[in-house]
Amino acid sequence: MLEDHLPLWEVFVRGRRGLDHKHIGSLHASDASQAMKSARDTYTRRQEGISIWVVKADDIHASQFENNASFFDPAEDKVYRHPTFYEVPEELKL
């Protein structure tokens, strides 16, 4: 029976220069260097990346969806952050 519980790592890959690292999946590995090799073999078999980040899943803190209403509330009533809020002469193409 399997009772290993190798730690879980989240994998982020930069596809090419100019792009962000993007979350692509996860894997189990004993340490960061093992996680890095497995990430290469699992997620970049067809040259999908030029850079990989691996992060221990335990180290990621996520916002809670059920708190979204209050958590993201500060942004809700600030329409003046958007350019379309302002009325300016159309012909000036501001």
Binding site: M1, H5, L8, G25, S26, T42
Partner: peptide, 30 residues
Amino acid sequence: VQDEAGHGLYLYSAAETLGVSREKMMNDLL
């Protein structure tokens, strides 16, 4: 065949996001 192993990993990884452990799934298979 290496791809098939990779596909298995993508899917186990997706299933784990639902709160089931890799070990549990593997043991159920074995």
